[in-house]
Simulated assay, not measured.
Amino acid sequence: MIFRQLTAFLFALILCCSALPAQALKYPPPLSFTNAALTGKDFSGQTLRVAEFSSANLEWTNFANADLRGAVFSTSIMTGANLHAADLTNAMLDQAILTDADLSDAVLVQAILLRSIINGVNITGADFTDALLDGAQIRQLCQQASGVNSKTGVVTRDSLGCR
């Protein structure tokens, strides 16, 4: 009786464990470009959910219309980057250098942009709903905020809480 129960248990264990590799293939590991030099690379229209670009050189990189939900750009150099209509929901752009970047029509819902440099950024139609920004960043962005996001229908000034 014990032998039969032990055999049944081992058989069930083998079946259970043999299914794990098939399940793992459904969810590829996130892409990592940490410390990478990707100046001028074209990622436009790509799905890069939860990709990591921490401390990367992304000057003049094209992310237009890319799915970057949950992506990490912490401490990256993104001067002149094209993020037009990119979905950056829940993305981390903390301490990133976004000078002269194009964030027009981008979705930055619940994104983290604390201590990022945002000089000369185009934010026409960007949605910053529930994004984490420094007070100085909000004041700076409100000076130029205009437009309505084409995907969410949210007014840029409203998403920043501009007065």
Rank of each mutant, 00 (worst) to 15 (best):
V72Y: 02
S146K: 15
A86H: 12
A37N: 15
G153S: 08
D100W: 01
A131Q: 03
Q95F: 05
L20M: 14
D158T: 09
R139Q: 12
D100S: 11
F43N: 07
D67W: 11
S18I: 11
N122A: 11
L133G: 01
D100F: 06
L141Y: 02
L160G: 00
L20T: 10
L13A: 14
L31E: 05
V109N: 04
A96G: 03
F3D: 00
F9R: 12
L132F: 15
L141C: 04
S76D: 03
T129K: 09
F33W: 03
L31Q: 04
F3Q: 04
F33M: 06
I14C: 15
A136Y: 12
T7I: 13
G135K: 12
Q140P: 01
G45A: 10
A81F: 14
E52H: 00
T129A: 10
F128M: 05
A66I: 01
R163L: 09
T7L: 15
A36W: 01
G147F: 04
P28S: 11
L6E: 01
T47G: 12
I14P: 14
D94G: 13
Y27A: 11
S159T: 04
A56C: 08
D158S: 10
A101W: 05
A126C: 03
N57T: 00
S116D: 03
L31M: 10
D42F: 02
L88H: 04
S159E: 03
R157N: 07
A12Y: 00
L68V: 05
L10C: 12
S146Y: 00
N62G: 12
K151E: 07
G120P: 04
D67Q: 13
L113M: 13
V107P: 00
G135L: 09
S116P: 03
A19C: 11
D67E: 14
L20P: 08
D158W: 12
G125M: 05
Q143T: 11
P30W: 03
T61H: 07
A51S: 10
S76F: 03
T99S: 12
C142N: 09
D94A: 14
S104N: 07
D42C: 07
M78D: 03
T47M: 13
L10I: 10
F33T: 01
P21C: 11
V72A: 09
A81K: 07
D42Q: 08
N119I: 15
P21K: 13
N119D: 15
L20R: 10
Q23N: 09
A51V: 09
F73S: 01
R49S: 10
A37M: 14
I112P: 00
Q110V: 09
D100T: 05
A56H: 02
F63T: 00
G147S: 06
L15I: 07
D134K: 11
L68G: 00
G40L: 02
R139I: 06
V148D: 05
N35M: 11
V109L: 14
T156K: 06
S146I: 10
L68N: 00
Q140S: 06
T39A: 15
I77Y: 08
D127K: 09
G161V: 12
L38G: 02
N62D: 15
I138A: 03
M92Q: 10
N90Q: 09
L114G: 05
L31W: 00
I14M: 13
L38R: 01
R139V: 07
